[in-house]
């Protein structure tokens, strides 16, 4: 499906996807523990991680009107990350940069990737906030 021409750009159909590496996300890809491994280790049978549902909500809310309107009718000004664009980018990134990451972890990495590319998030700011969240979630 996708045609990786170099490390920075991928084509998906007639779309050009900016897939240049984002070190923070690559680090998570390398060292993050995926749900299927965690579930296996802890004997949990639920096929989905608990955060999947909130991830989906984040995607839906960023998609705005594009969830319920035809692509041509979507008001780009009110839609931060149209659902079809996000899906195209996720498909391309899942075929390329995040190929070995299972679902829904790769959906999450792709979402963060798309948001950083569009300037909706800043990599350094995300890294800083992740450290704060980690501290909060692990606080004794």
């Amino acid at each position: 499906m996708s045609d990786a021409v170099d490390d920075e750009t991928e084509f998906y159909g007639d779309r050009k996807i900016d897939s240049k590496p984002i070190p923070l996300l690559d680090a998570i890809k390398e060292k993050g523990r995926v749900w299927e491994d965690l579930a296996d280790e802890y004997g949990v049978t639920n096929p989905d991680p608990p955060w999947k549902i909130t991830l989906e909500t984040t995607c839906d809310l960023l998609a705005g009107d594009s969830c319920v309107k035809d692509y041509d009718e979507v008001d780009q000004d009110t839609t931060l990350l149209p659902s079809l664009d996000r899906r195209w980018e996720e498909d391309a990134l899942s075929d390329g940069r995040y190929k070995d990451v299972p679902f829904p972890e790769r959906q999450l990495l792709s979402l963060a990737h798309s948001m950083i590319n569009r300037g909706l998030l800043d990599e350094a700011e995300l890294e800083k906030h992740m450290a704060a969240v980690e501290k909060r979630l692990n606080s004794g």
Partner: peptide
């Protein structure tokens, strides 16, 4: 996991 943290962040 780092993924859980990333989702929240």
């Amino acid at each position: 996991s780092d993924f859980e943290i990333l989702e929240v962040a």
